[in-house]
């Protein structure tokens, strides 16, 4: 997943209160053309998905007919039934859910604490540690797969949830983003809380967290999507099909479907569906999460 750079400004509602675009004249030929063009582009983008759904509803022999047919002659959900019956797809759903939830939760907790530590406390070596963290942003996880796998074999974490989760929790860029954000939060609230006798841990929980809800939301959303869809690391660290996440399981076990395209497409649809539904329902929050966090350009 690409990294996000978020600004420290706690700008919120104002940006989206109107959400309108450029002011445009009422009715012009150009405007109609743009609308039509935008819809055509959207349809073009949807065609692969629709084609996958279409194929998944065809009886197997119909999938390889030429010339191709658009609508299934005799729609059937046999392919879905077969996938759910024979495969481990439900197990992989469970694994993906567990992994994505753990990664998201731990990333939020660990990164928030670290960001607070770097932003608000002083301790010897803080600058050096923060420098190391910044350098860590430059290390692409992809180049670590080989030594990391070795390490996991040493720790006995191959084929475990922790083995999948822990390396994904190390996201220095998230700490960096949150630290920058915390730097911009006024110290007044914190001082007031301290006068009231709050511990620093409590300050994090009841001052910093509520203040930075939008940025935490953006971190959570993209961490979750990233963890759910992550392919490379789970692919490396799981060998037991019972431990695989959805993307890895589908990639490894597809061979057993042989030639059955309807079945392959049914498993693809099932694998893509959960986040698609979530996105359809929470589109506004997702789009806003990015905007709320304030993209620094």
């Amino acid at each position: 997943m690409a990294t996000l750079t978020l600004s420290s400004r706690a700008s919120r509602a104002s940006r989206f209160s109107r959400g309108s675009g450029p002011v445009q004249p009422r009715f012009t030929f150009a405007k109609v053309a743009i609308t039509v063009g935008s819809v055509l582009l959207a349809l073009l983008w949807l065609v692969p998905l629709l084609w996958a759904i279409d194929t998944s509803l065809k009886p197997e022999p119909e999938t390889t007919q030429t010339p191709i047919t658009w609508l299934p002659g005799a729609p059937t959900i046999d392919a879905y039934r077969n996938v759910l019956d024979q495969g481990s797809i439900l197990r992989w759903f469970l694994n993906s859910t567990i992994v994505a939830c753990l990664v998201t939760t731990l990333t939020l907790v660990v990164s928030t604490l670290a960001a607070y530590g770097f932003s608000r406390t002083t301790f010897p070596g803080r600058r050096v540690l923060f420098g190391i963290l910044i350098a860590g942003i430059l290390v692409p996880p992809q180049v670590l797969i080989v030594p990391l796998f070795q390490e996991m074999t040493g720790l006995g974490l191959v084929d475990t949830y922790w083995g999948i989760v822990l390396p994904q929790v190390v996201a220095p860029v998230m700490v960096f983003v949150l630290k920058k954000f915390f730097d911009g939060v006024s110290r007044d609230y914190e001082d007031a809380a301290r006068v009231d006798g709050a511990t620093r841990l409590r300050i994090v929980w009841s001052v910093m967290v509520p203040m930075s809800r939008p940025v935490l939301g953006a971190v959570a959303i993209f961490t979750f999507i990233g963890a759910w869809n992550n392919f490379l690391w789970p692919f490396i660290v799981t060998t037991d099909p019972a431990m695989m996440t959805i993307p890895v399981g589908l990639a490894n076990v597809q061979g057993s479907y042989g030639l059955r395209y309807a079945q392959i497409m049914a498993s693809a649809v099932l694998g893509g569906l959960p986040l698609l539904v979530v996105f359809a329902l929470f589109q506004r929050q997702v789009v806003r999460g990015v905007g709320d966090a304030g993209i620094k350009g």
Binding site: L90, C101, T104, I225, P274, V278, L281, Q285
Partner: peptide, 10 residues
């Protein structure tokens, strides 16, 4: 599927 759907990241 009946597996617990991921909580909405909202």
């Amino acid at each position: 599927p009946h597996a617990a759907p991921p909580p909405p990241p909202g």
